[in-house]
Structure formats: C-alpha cells, structure tokens
C-alpha cells in the first residue's frame, strides 16, 4: 500500500511542521514578552515604608506562621531617645525593660545604653529579627516621634508567593515587586540621612 503510506507520511509531515511552527510562534511571542523590558530579573515582594500604616496585617496575613515581614531599625534616622515611643508601652509605669512596660509583645527590641551627653541619656534600639513577629506595633509607636522603625519583607524567609497574601490584605497597597538585585527599600526621609552617615 505505497499510496496509503505516502498519504500518512505527508499528513505526518504536515502535522509536524504545524507543531513546530506553533511552538516557534508561541516561543517567539513569549520571547518578545520577556525581551520587551530588557533584562528581566526575578522580582521580590517588598513594602514601601512610606505607604505602610502599621495596621498589623503583616503579622496575621502572611502564609507563614511567623510572618516574613519584620520591623527594622534605620539607625541614622533614630533619635536614640530615652523614652522611646516604639519601645515603651503607652501605659508604661517605669522606664525599665520589664515586659509590662514594653510595647513589643515578644520583647524583640533590645534597648542598649550608649552615652550620656548634655544631661541626655541615649539608648540604641535594635530589633532581634528572630523574635519579631511583624505586628508593626513598634512602627506605629515610633511614628509618633521619628518613625525610624519600619517594616520590611525579609528575603531569607519570604516564600515569594506569586500573589502575596499580605499584599492583598494591605489597606494602603504598600506592597510592591522590587528587582532581586535591590530587594530592600527605605523611607524617602531616611535616604539623605543614611547617605550622611555612610559618608562619615
């Protein structure tokens, strides 16, 4: 049956060429999509600290049990106050480090005495990321004064979900995708201060 085989071969060849053409067309379309923005790097989730309002959803809406979002201290923006409104609970009774006077529910902020100058006592406040649960209480408290504490997605913990659950729950749409080579943001108020201190 040479005829039947020929027909079959012809049909097979036609089908193959259609498949290859289809595959090539699809590939080139996606190549165009990929190439349209130049060099495409991985994108990571991050919080724009200028939009964050410290609502606490980061602690409760992350798919991780303990949120990938944590508070960070921008030291060049910190006033090193003795009465830190981000450290002491609003109802504090004593200026000490006992738990009932602390705002942080997990005691994740370390208060270290640095220096006494012109009658003023300066303390450094450092976040222990292992203890921080990302509730943003300190961020909201600190915002009453300088606002040097802010929220950031920690990329050693973030799973990089395609749709970030916290981003969906974020009331101010503060979540954004940032390129992987610069995965952390800072407040725009902090930019000149950080520059000033890094030059020194």
């Amino acid at each position: 049956m040479p005829n039947a085989t020929q027909t079959k071969n012809r049909r097979g060849f036609l089908g193959d060429s259609m498949r290859v053409a289809g595959a090539l067309a699809t590939c080139s379309f996606f190549g165009y999509l990929a190439g349209r923005k130049g060099r495409n790097r991985e994108l990571l989730w991050q919080i724009d600290p200028d939009k964050c309002m410290g609502c606490g959803n980061c602690a409760t809406h992350c798919v991780l049990d303990i949120s990938a979002v944590k508070a960070v201290q921008c030291f060049p923006m910190c006033g090193y106050c003795d009465i830190c409104t981000g450290y002491f609970d609003v109802g504090y009774t004593e200026l000490d480090t006992s738990a009932e006077n602390q705002l942080c529910p997990t005691s994740a902020i370390v208060r270290t005495f640095i220096e006494s100058k012109a009658g003023q006592r300066f303390y450094e406040y450092t976040i222990d990321p292992a203890k921080c649960i990302g509730c943003a209480k300190c961020v909201k408290g600190c915002a009453l004064m300088n606002g040097s504490l802010y929220m950031q997605v920690m990329h050693d913990r973030c799973l990089g979900c395609n749709e970030c659950s916290i981003a969906v729950a974020c009331p101010t749409e503060a979540f954004c995708r940032v390129p992987a080579e610069a995965p952390y943001l800072m407040k725009r108020q902090a930019i000149p201060l950080v520059k000033k201190f890094s030059i020194r």
Binding site: F75, E124, M154, D156, R157, A180, F197
Partner: peptide, 10 residues
Amino acid sequence: IPTTEFPEGP
C-alpha cells in the same frame, strides 16, 4: 551609628 543588616535574597 550601625548600619541596618538585611538578610540576603534568594
């Protein structure tokens, strides 16, 4: 004045 340390991304 310390600089804030951030964990590296993936």
